[in-house]
């Protein structure tokens, strides 16, 4: 069998060049940038602080609140500024993906806001956003058990690949493209987020998850390195 060729020539288990940096928004309690090739996400954390409106307060523990937003010019066809159905859903799955690691038990009635902004998009934006958000939370000193690291796995025709870019997302040959975004809690290796759209067997999906688990370990190492060197851009 001939070696599968990805549009940009990457190996099937290779991510695009990754960059990470902590401390990029001065006003924020914590902030970070995460980049997969042409996809750039930044995140800023504010809190814990009093929750407004009051009726949203949880008397049992603090609330994690995420918002995902794209710059209108981050994609080819301009996006109308403001929230959309898509961004609302991504905000929520981002929240769910980070929920397992944050310990907000001591912050009853308060909220930690995580704002994610996509500066430039070349697919896998939610994964970059989650990676940046986890780093920003850590820098803000929010009590956490662990980090969350996120990656996308693609299936192009029958071939699984790591870190999908736009050209791959638009793959049309054979069985077309399947896009799987997933996030892992590092130490216990549990899934905190998975979404899929495409066309894939259960067996191959399990394979994809395993591939994703391995790939997020590289993401984790970079996140950790950036957190140890605030203000410095690190790459892998």
């Amino acid at each position: 069998m001939t070696e599968f060729k990805r549009p940009d020539g990457r190996k099937i288990d290779a991510t695009r060049p990754m960059k990470a940096k902590v401390g990029i928004v001065k006003n924020a309690d914590g902030s970070a940038l995460f980049q997969f090739g042409g996809t750039i996400a930044i995140a800023a954390v504010y809190g814990p602080k009093e929750m407004h409106p009051r009726n949203k307060r949880n008397p049992a523990k603090g609330t994690l609140r995420c918002t995902y937003n794209m710059n209108s010019f981050s994609v080819s066809d301009r996006i109308r500024p403001g929230p959309s159905r898509r961004s609302t859903e991504i905000s929520k799955v981002t929240e769910w993906s980070l929920e397992p690691i944050v310990m907000l038990g001591d912050y009853a009635g308060q909220v930690v806001d995580v704002h994610i902004q996509i500066i430039q998009a070349d697919a896998s934006t939610r994964c970059a956003g989650i990676n940046a958000a986890a780093m920003a939370l850590a820098q803000a000193g929010i009590p956490m058990t662990d980090l969350v690291s996120s990656i996308s796995i693609g299936k192009l025709d029958k071939q699984l690949v790591v870190d999908v870019d736009k050209a791959e997302e638009d793959w049309e040959d054979g069985e077309g493209a399947t896009d799987i975004a997933l996030s892992f809690v590092h130490n216990n290796e549990k899934l905190s987020h998975i979404q899929l759209d495409g066309y894939i067997t259960a067996e191959q999906l399990k394979e994809a998850v395993e591939l994703g688990k391995q790939a997020t370990k590289k993401v984790y190492e970079l996140q950790k390195e950036a957190l140890k060197n605030p203000g410095k851009e690190v790459s892998a």
Binding site: V25, N27, A28, I42, A43, A44, Y46, K49, T67, N69, S72, P81, G82, D113, H115, I116, Q117
Partner: peptide, 18 residues
């Protein structure tokens, strides 16, 4: 010309319509 004052950029800016 439009501007978005992002809550990301300041603790004073709240999410919501412009």
């Amino acid at each position: 010309v439009t501007a978005e004052l992002l809550p990301l950029s300041s603790p004073r800016i709240e999410a919501g319509p412009p």
